Amino acid sequence: MNMEFDEIRPYHDEELPQIFEELIADPAFRQVATAVFPEVPFEALAQKMRSCKTKLEFQKAFCYVILRKFAKDTTLGVTLDRTALSDKESAYTYISNHRDIILDSGFLSVELIDQDIDTVEIAIGDNLLIYPWIKKFVRVNKSFIVQRALTMRQMLESSARMSRYMHHTIKDKNQSIWIAQREGRAKDSNDRTQESVLKMLAMGGEGDIIDRLTEMNIAPLAISYEYDPCDYLKAQEFQLKRDIPDYKKTQADDLKNMQTGLFGFKGYVHFQVSPCINEELAKLDHSLPKPELFSQISALIDRKIHANYRIYPGNYIAHDCLSGTKSFSTHYTAEEKQRFLKYIDQQLDRIELANKDVPFLREKILLMYANPLTNYLVAKTETPK
């Protein structure tokens, strides 16, 4: 057993009985479980937990049920198209844009279960593990921990270990992984792959940079929410950062974002998987300087994600509103425009700031919906090098 990863990896299946008992004994976990399943006595939930022998069994018994309920209550439907990956047995690293703290990876796993495919291991930042029970719960739910707030030296060591863990997960465990293309969500929905994510992935494995990234079987994944329930919170954050130079989000802010993302209305949600990029990686010049290689690979992943967005009427309407034109008016009706602009007004009303700059905030929210369309159009016209 490789003990190097013990601090960050999901629990092994044989560790689950002990962790289940710790969760069952935790009053905070009990309170949350009772709130999520109000019609089921907690002792019955505890017995069901104890009957789960593997992490996948636990996911199917609990997480699947919870996430299906969120999908039913807060969306008009969640869909996944992974026909670009014909192989159901191989392990892939799904690198995606990041919209919702919990549901990006959650909905993906639910849809994979429905297609009779194994769920993913999930990269999750330790800044979100606010309570001890959350840290235990996510590790039962096949998450591995991304350590944040470290010194530069600690960060290098932590990144190298995480990279080795991810290579081990893909290569030795044949277990797929989900990771966001950047640290944190793109607040303006202008999705770009951070080269630091690729550099981290290239720390583990064998050979040169291209060999190491090829070993990870990267499959870019585009996630498209018709509505982002956190749009008003993101806009609010833009104004706070503008007005308070050293503004930092608190744990309470993170909790509010998680809660709003879970319970807010999302409209249609679509996951579109691109083919694995190994063939394109093979065509790159191995002798290129590292910065040039990472730049080309991140641009490649961005193109794949941008070209696979699902574009909704709101994206077209927001783009037209910002440009002051009717360039995309054939893509929406007058009724859809009225409904979308009413939604924007309702979201603006939810922002609680003393010196609320409504024109600035409105522009920021519209930009969140226009940027995916802007990037989609560019990706569709660009021809890969």
Score class of each variant (00 low, 15 high):
residue 50 R to L: 10
residue 136 K to I: 00
residue 354 A to N: 10
residue 227 Y to K: 12
residue 126 D to S: 00
residue 246 D to V: 01
residue 63 C to A: 12
residue 375 N to T: 07
residue 155 M to A: 10
residue 28 A to T: 09
residue 346 Q to R: 15
residue 96 S to G: 13
residue 310 R to W: 03
residue 252 A to I: 11
residue 94 Y to T: 06
residue 322 L to C: 06
residue 168 H to M: 05
residue 385 K to E: 10
residue 177 I to C: 05
residue 104 D to H: 04
residue 234 K to L: 12
residue 8 I to K: 05
residue 333 T to H: 04
residue 48 K to C: 03
residue 305 I to P: 01
residue 369 Y to S: 08
residue 153 R to F: 09
residue 206 E to T: 15
residue 67 L to D: 10
residue 266 K to C: 01
residue 182 R to V: 03
residue 34 T to A: 11
residue 233 L to I: 13
residue 111 E to V: 00
residue 292 E to M: 03
residue 240 L to M: 15
residue 173 K to I: 05
residue 229 P to M: 10
residue 38 P to N: 11
residue 149 A to G: 06
residue 262 L to M: 15
residue 27 P to F: 07
residue 49 M to N: 05
residue 180 A to H: 06
residue 325 T to H: 01
residue 38 P to Q: 05
residue 228 D to K: 09
residue 75 T to M: 08
residue 32 V to E: 00
residue 345 D to W: 04
residue 273 V to H: 00
residue 241 K to Y: 02
residue 230 C to L: 08
residue 195 E to V: 14
residue 217 N to K: 12
residue 258 M to S: 08
residue 145 I to T: 13
residue 53 K to E: 14
residue 49 M to S: 02
residue 63 C to F: 08
residue 374 T to C: 14
residue 134 I to T: 14
residue 300 L to I: 02
residue 149 A to P: 02
residue 45 L to T: 08
residue 362 R to V: 13
residue 217 N to E: 01
residue 153 R to M: 04
residue 79 T to V: 04
residue 323 S to A: 15
residue 36 V to C: 10
residue 360 F to Y: 15
residue 296 Q to H: 04
residue 372 P to V: 04
residue 173 K to H: 07
residue 192 R to C: 06
residue 258 M to I: 15
residue 315 N to V: 01
residue 118 D to E: 10
residue 59 Q to V: 04
residue 253 D to I: 00
residue 41 P to C: 05
residue 107 F to H: 12
residue 59 Q to Y: 15
residue 254 D to I: 00
residue 103 L to F: 10
residue 167 H to E: 11
residue 259 Q to F: 12
residue 21 E to W: 09
residue 307 A to T: 02
residue 90 S to F: 10
residue 8 I to P: 02
residue 226 E to A: 01
residue 265 F to T: 11
residue 126 D to F: 00
residue 231 D to H: 11
residue 83 T to R: 12
residue 115 Q to K: 13
residue 109 S to N: 15
residue 359 P to F: 07
residue 234 K to A: 09
residue 192 R to D: 06
residue 337 K to V: 08
residue 137 F to W: 14
residue 346 Q to D: 14
residue 163 S to V: 10
residue 271 F to H: 00
residue 40 V to T: 15
residue 138 V to T: 14
residue 23 L to E: 03
residue 339 R to M: 04
residue 134 I to L: 14
residue 262 L to F: 12
residue 172 D to I: 07
residue 200 M to P: 01
residue 347 Q to A: 10
residue 371 N to L: 13
